[in-house]
Nucleic acid binder design. Structure first.
Lengths: 241, 241
DNA sequence: AATGTGTCAGTGGACGGACCAATTCATGCC
DNA sequence: GGCATGAATTGGTCCGTCCACTGACACATT
């Protein structure tokens, strides 16, 4: 149990289609493929990459869903945009060493969304936020961390901002944010502090005071970040860029 | 050629895997599948959906890349998060009637990134922005619109912000932004106005003055938005929600 | 009885081939 | 030259097969 198992760690098992996404990215760069240009036919790509068409098509489906390529039935595969080709948000977030970036992105998005929420919130939004606040109060009163109430509150704020695009983007970061949330709320006295911060935010939004809502959200998130960053230490081994 | 072909337009042509992504989203909701729960086996899903495993696996690859599910070899398919299941940024952006949201998201992201850029920019970033500015100047001097120079400049600012997550997000909106860019720059005298705005932004970033950089970027984007929104009119037919 | 080991059913991973459907393009007719 | 036509190209989907990984259960060992 005390032996160093690092030399025995399982070798890098990756999905074939993931590798293919990267390979296709390399292809775009190496051949200097321009936006709008056509890729070789699927059959040829599959052959040259040494994989089956089925596997290749999984990669193409991913790339199409990400908006990097366009696949026309009977026409061919075309490059729509090359910037960031092959980069998947989900992967970027997972990489260790990204915590500061995640927190920063979160602050930028949530502060902006809080500002919008203060402008656009309707009675339904207020009711949802109140409900989330009450839920978190109950959790905390019962000696819980209030994790789910915290998440509900922030989600309610996002919805009140009435911008489905930004909401979608922040949802993509939800997982990473969730981890920081747990860490932060595990700190002594943090749940109560967060509860108070939420009340400030809600009050500002309810008063339709965008600047105050933004400031309150920023202050709240800065507190959370401090805790997270204190606990966080860059892992030298994972520092791969 | 002048006949109304709309009643004859090809019937609902959608990729099978796209439908499957939606169907799986419905499945999650209808069965109230909880986060962490397992989906039925691929073979069963394929049978029940009336499609081949190959097609289903395209949909699963997309969902996995989006971070909605986790597929474990030999284990099964598990739900990672349900919020926004099946929603693809690329699709949301394309929908008509989303222009205001796109512009709003762009402003929020770019203003924040400009602020960060003013803090973190190094000599390389400054050089890149200068190069982009010079490029746009040349385009405009040659009676061009300066579209590519404009894009390069904004991209340089994004990079100077040094947050790959935010950069990735804004890249996802790049296409939609590109359209507004063309519209805006087509307006009389706009290229020169944009050029001046870019100089303001660059100056603020170069001076490491975040508030001024943010203000300059905001002012610039507001100008662009005004033009775009003036030209934009909600299409009643496409108002599908 | 506790523990280690082997086996096997279930499940995802990948492949190859076959056929269908949309597009493209050269061919030849007018 | 313009246009219809059909073959070649290329993506869309399905099927069956086999491999690799996981987890649980039965069995053997101690």
């Amino acid at each position: 149990m005390t032996v160093d198992t690092s030399p025995l760690r399982p070798l890098g098992r990756t999905r074939l289609y993931e590798d293919l996404v990267e390979r296709l990215g390399e292809f775009v760069i190496r051949t200097n493929l321009e936006v709008g240009a056509r890729f070789p036919p699927e059959r040829e790509l599959a052959t040259r990459l040494g994989v089956s068409r089925a596997s290749l098509r999984q990669a193409l489906a991913v790339l199409e869903a990400q908006g990097f390529i366009e696949v026309r039935h009977g026409g061919g595969v075309f490059l729509r945009r090359s910037r960031g080709f092959g980069g998947v948000l989900h992967k970027l977030v997972e990489r260790r060493g990204r915590l500061p970036e995640v927190l920063e992105a979160r602050e930028l998005l949530e502060v902006g969304l809080a500002e919008l929420a203060a402008t656009r919130r309707d009675e339904t939004d207020i009711a949802e936020m109140r409900r989330a606040l009450a839920g978190m109060e109950a959790e905390v009163a019962g000696a819980g961390l209030g994790v789910s109430g915290d998440a509900s509150f922030h989600h309610a704020v996002h919805r009140a901002g009435k911008n489905s695009l930004l909401e979608h983007v922040i949802d993509g970061l939800a997982e990473a944010i969730h981890e920081t949330r747990i860490e932060s709320l595990s700190e002594p006295d943090r749940p109560r502090a967060s509860l108070a911060a939420h009340r400030c935010i809600l009050d500002a939004i309810e008063s339709s005071d965008p600047p105050r809502a933004a400031a309150a959200m920023r202050a709240h998130l800065r507190q959370v970040s401090d805790v997270a960053l204190l606990r966080w230490e860059p892992s030298p081994a994972a520092d791969d860029d």
